[in-house]
Every structure is written in structure tokens, then in C-alpha cells.
Design a protein around this nucleic acid. Structure first.
Lengths: 210, 210, 210, 210
DNA sequence: CATGAATGAGCATTCATTCAT
DNA sequence: TATGAATGAATGCTCATTCAT
């Protein structure tokens, strides 16, 4: 899953054989994503990114139209990949419960693989909601929500899931609990993303009470 | 609870017996909190705040030392109140389950009463974690965590709560799901905060599966 | 005539008694007008203007919204004054010939008094014609043309002026010959603007041939 | 006349017997001249020119040393041709009146054939007067003036022209009225350049009064 | 308390130019 | 001839902050 989210691989510098131009772009975007995510978009200056890349700030404009264009490209890639992945999962023809588990595993896996893009999506909500240029993010979010809601509702219809919970609110609780882990989950730490996912599923399935 | 969190009352301009100067401060802080929360701290200019208050930006410096000092004061008030409230709840001598429910109800109530402070705390994590001046926020967060963890562990010990869940991870899941609602919960909407809290408790107690 | 065009007086610094704020603006605009006119608008940097005014470039933005806003204000003042003056002249109820002579004297007087504004109007035609923000300049120019054409046509009707000349083309020839003098006429030189005007009228009235 | 001014022909791309390289130069210069004239020299970027030519901006430097060198070459061609043409006219051994008419016809013809070069010469006076590299333009202008003044003075001596007009000022009036037409004359419009010339001569010869 | 003018550091962006390929 | 990546200096503009009045 999430095979084309390139955050983790691009910086490794392994790839040289593919188109050189595209590789440079990806490299710069990867740097930008990390800085945007850790310092915040508006706290990150174009010079910061350029310094990290070892070039002058003006040179960035050979590759990208603007600082905002970099963020746009990062988020567009992220949202696009995310959407196509969860659609694959939802359409894989399993039971609703298996589908929901799949979506949840995929979410934690995404956090593991492209933590900076996820953090960006989480932290820059004010910017994303305000600037019209980022309307596409909200649109994609609605598409994502539609997929999750479909699974939840079908699960209730098939009596996999409890029927007394409001699907909309339930979706938000699940979504927020999962995506928020990006703030404390460390991809290089000892806690595996599958372990975290299992813990969450355990709690979600059966509840907290003994 | 949360009796001195002043977000909702200050703008009303009732201006009670306390010194007029203090009232002005609270008013300005309230304006700042709302703008910091909705636009983001660094996207909010001192002039934005002053404009909204009907004064010139330079005049703000008669009330506060700096823009950062305004944020500090907002967060210090918020964290202080939050901590004292949850300690009261945890020490009220109930069962762990009653205590946990109390904490959860209180959280949603806080979101209802001081949404801007909560949003600030949620959205400015990058700034808060980076700037040394805001270390006190992290410190208070640890204190809050200690209280919750105490309740959770005691609940496991008393077999109120399942023992197979890791308390640390469980706490984070619960905390993040709750505080994140600040992004979509509308204090003036039709959905009551108690209703949201009840929905969450329902799911948390018994789980999602039928 | 042209009594409120302030280019020549503002820099003198004589006036202190009137509103101090307005005086500072006028002073800065006067500096800007001169530099815009002599170096060209786009060759003049905001720092140039600020240096000449003895302040930092950023401080200019306390008085004006942008560099373009400065040019706009200069041109708006100029076109407004020009239009009101020539309307006064055309409506003074003289013969067409007297009216035309009056317009021509006024033009040379304007060049004498506000050479920088005139030069700006002459030299920045590319910018003025392209940028939509400066459409008002073109509009005012058309109004000016209407006044001149009215005088020329009435003169032909009353047989003051030759009837075999196209009024539109004639107007342009006269206009261009006059306004272009701003490039070589020196307000502080020995050649009086009335002398130049007389020379032009002499040629215009009777022609070049002996 | 003006046989080597290449504005009108170069873009046609006929590419005659001369070296292909030279043709490319002329093509690029033609593009540059048009853009310099219509947007202004400093508002035209090297990239604008390269885009229009279908190459990258850096590639322009294989043909020209600098942006300024392009302008220099355009103006040098223009001034050189102009000077040789008017000298031919002035030395053709006609009466002063015939010579003057010839100069005037030639001027309007030049505007018709190389409007961009003329516009450049008219509009970039600030740049041309300031930058030492363009001193040759001013020098050529003085040579042109000398020719015109010779004709005017001889005309006065031979009593072709009125003796009470100052030749220097008269020259400037005539020159400015003519060259300024470049701003409104449309080479592809219905108004022929000879018609405009005739109108001007009519007014100049006999004056405006009936 | 508030104004208004100014500071000074910084920001995103532009652009003519260079150069290895 | 042309590309594409980069330079380096400059540009218009922003903004938290200061301070005399």
C-alpha cells in the first residue's frame, strides 16, 4: 500500500537512474516537507529550504513557482495517493470489519511512511481552510470521508458494527485519534506502526471496560 | 469548572468590579486568542489584533511586552485552569470509571467554553515544542498526563478497565480523539457538547463491534 | 492657473503651518515624482526614494500602500488639476482663438510648474497603457482631448481656424509638440516659459513659410 | 530610404543569402525591439525575449553579450540608418523648402517602417540620457539636429522660411510633433503615413489661422 | 492610554548572467 | 547552438517593536 508516497525513499538518494530532473524536484520537495512539518509552513523560509539543499534561495525558483507551489505539490501528491489507496482497500470485497481494519492499518502505515505530509495535513489546517488555493485538500478529505462512511454504514447494516453510534461522529473520533498519532509516533523508534495499530484496534473493537 | 477561563465572558464587556485596566487586558487577550486560533499565531499580526481592538498596533505595547507575551499569558491561563480542574476531578474520590468519565466530560466542556485556547494548544504544537519560552506548556501537559494515567492505571488495578491495553498509548488515543474535536465542534451549533461526550463515552466503553 | 499643483513648492519646505501629516506625504510624493520622472518609474527603487527622504525604505509604507500607490497619487493629482484648469479656460467665454491660446499658455505653464508630473505622463506611457490601475489616466486624457477638440471645432465653425485641417490630427500635433518640450525645457534656465509659448504660437498661427 | 532598417522584414523569416547566424541575430533583435518598445526596456526580461523566440533565456547569451548589448545594437542600427538617410536628403541639392519637406516625409516613413526603434528612442530617454554606454545616441541626435538646422537656417537666409522664428526652438517643435506620432500612428491602420505627413506639412507651411 | 512616525531585520521573489553538458 | 541548473544581488514589501509627543 501507499507504494508511491516517496517521502522516506527520496532522501535516501538511492535512485539516480531515473530522470535526473524529476529526482531533484522530489529531493527538494522532501526537504521542504520535513521543514514545513517540523517548523510550520510559515515559519519555514525559502532560505531555510535552500540552505538545507545546499543551493541559494533564488535557485529554488528554477524548480518551483513559489513556496506555496511546493506545499501544493506535496499535499496534492499526498492526498492523491491516500485516496487511491483507501479506495483500493474499500473495494477489495471483504467484510466491513475487514475493510475498516484495513483502512486503519493503512492509516498507521501512511503515518509511518510519510509522517511529514501527514503532519502538514494535521498542523496547517488554518492555512488549508483559509487559502482558496488549497480547496482541493478539503475536497479530497471529503472523498476520503465518503469511503470511510460507506464502510461504517455498511458495517452497521450488516450488523458488524453497533447501530446506536452516529457514523459521522464515530468516523471523526477514529480519524482524529489515528492521524493525531503523527505527533508522537516516531518512525525510527522501537514502537512498530503495526503494534500501535493493533493497540488501537483492540480498544476500538471491544472498548475500554473490562 | 474552568471558572476563570475568560474566553466566553471577556468579550461580553460586562466589566465587573475588578480594575478597568485588567478588563482591558482580558479583552485584548480574548481578541488575540481568537485570531491566533483561527489564523494561526504567526499569521496573526500585531496590527490585526490592534485593528480588531480599535487601537494602533504600537498601543498594544502598553498592555503587553510582546506578541509572544500575549500567547504565553493565554496558554498559562489555560493550562493552569485545566490542570486545577482535572485534579479536582481526580481527587473527588469516585471510582476510576466515574473519574475517567468526569475527565472526559470536563474536556468536552473545556472545548465548549474556551475553544480558541484549546485550538491554540492543538495547532501550535510546532511552535510550542520548539521555543524554549513555552516549555511550561509541555510541563503542564506532563502533569495532566500524570493525572489521567493515574486514573487509568487505578482502573486497571481495580479491574474497571481492561488490563491488556497499554495505559500510555490508551491515554494518547483518548486525549487526541477528544481534543481534536475542537476542529469541527461548533460551540454555537446544534450539537451539544454533552451529546458529543456521550457519543464518545459510548464508543469508548463498549467498543465499536456489535 | 494650476494653483494647486504643488511640485515646485512642496520641496521648498516653506510650509510648516498646515497639517503636519499631509505635509510629509506631499514631501515624499514630491521626492518620488522627481525620481520617477528622471530615472523612470521602474528604475526608481523604493529604497532610492527613502534614502532621498532620509528614512528607511520600510518606513515609506507607513505613508503609502505601495510604490504604485505613490505613482497613482501623483498622476491623479496632476490629471485632476490639469482637467479643471483647462475646463476653466475653455469656459471663460472668449473667442476660440483666445481659448486655444489660453490652453497653450496653460500647458507651457504646467510644464514650468510641475515638470516631473508632466514628464511622468510623457515617459511612462507603456506602463500607463498596460496596467489597469492606471486606466483613469487614459480616461482623463480623453476628457482633456474633448475640451481641446471642442475649441478647435468651434474655431473652424467660426472661421477662426482653417477648415481643411483634420481637428483630431491637428490636436495631436499641437499636444505632442507642447508636452514634449518637457524633455528639454529647463524651469530654472534663462528661457521663460512664456517666451517658449510665444514662439510656438507664432509658428502655429502663421506657419513656417515666409 | 532606410533600406537596412530590418524591423519589418526580419520577422518574415525569408532568410536570404546571408549567413544563417546573422539571420537568427536579426530575428532575435526584432523580437527584442518590439518588446522593448511596447513594454519598456526594463520591464522586458531576457526571459520574455527568449520565450518569444522559443529558446531558454541562457541561450540568448550565445548571440549577444548582454541585454544592454541588444538595445545598443538596435539603436546603433537605427541611428546610423537615420543619419545616412537625412544626409542624403539634405545633400540632394534642392531648395531648402524641398529639403525640409523631404526630411519630414522621411521621418514619417521611418515611423512607418521601424516603429519599434522609433518608440524606443522616444520612450527610453531617461535611460539613454543616464547610461554612459548610450552616449552615442545623443551624439547621433546632435548630428541629426545639425542637418535639420542647416536646412532651416539656409531657408531663412534664402527667405523661404520666416526669419522671426528661432531655428533651434522651431526644430525641436517640428521634431517632437513628428516623432511623437509613433505613439498613436498605426502602421497597419487605414491612415497612410503620407497622409499624416501631408496634414502636418499643411499646418506647418501655412499655420492654423484662416 | 493612545498616536504616528520610524526602525531594522527579514521575507518571498525576480532577474541578468554564467557555465558544465 | 541550446539546455538546465545555479548564482548573487537586488527589489517591493512586512512586521514586531520603539519612542517622542
Amino acid at each position: 500500500m501507499a507504494s508511491s508516497n516517496n517521502e522516506a525513499t527520496a532522501r535516501g538518494g538511492r535512485r539516480r537512474s531515473n530522470g535526473a530532473g524529476s529526482s531533484r524536484r522530489a529531493q527538494l520537495l522532501s526537504i521542504a516537507a520535513e521543514m514545513f512539518a517540523t517548523r510550520g509552513y510559515s515559519q519555514t523560509t525559502v532560505r531555510d529550504i535552500a540552505d538545507e539543499a545546499g543551493i541559494l534561495s533564488g535557485s529554488l525558483y528554477h524548480h518551483f513557482d513559489s513556496k506555496e507551489a511546493m506545499l501544493t505539490e506535496i499535499l496534492r501528491d499526498f492526498m492523491g495517493n491516500l485516496l487511491s489507496e483507501i479506495r483500493d482497500i474499500a473495494e477489495a470485497g471483504q467484510t466491513p470489519r475487514e475493510a475498516l481494519d484495513g483502512l486503519i492499518y493503512n492509516s498507521f502505515e501512511t503515518i509511518h511512511k510519510v509522517p511529514f505530509a501527514v503532519a502538514l495535513y494535521q498542523n496547517e489546517s488554518a492555512l488549508l481552510a483559509t487559502t482558496p488555493e488549497f480547496a482541493f485538500v478539503h475536497k479530497a478529505s471529503l472523498d476520503v470521508e465518503k469511503v470511510w462512511l460507506g464502510v461504517l454504514k455498511q458495517g452497521q447494516a450488516e450488523e458488524d458494527f453497533r447501530a446506536d453510534l452516529d457514523p459521522g461522529i464515530t468516523y471523526r473520533f477514529i480519524r482524529d485519534a489515528i492521524w493525531s498519532t503523527v505527533r508522537w509516533y516516531n518512525p525510527r523508534g522501537r514502537l512498530q506502526h503495526r503494534t500501535v495499530a493493533d493497540q488501537y484496534l483492540e480498544m476500538l473493537h471491544g472498548g475500554l471496560l473490562a
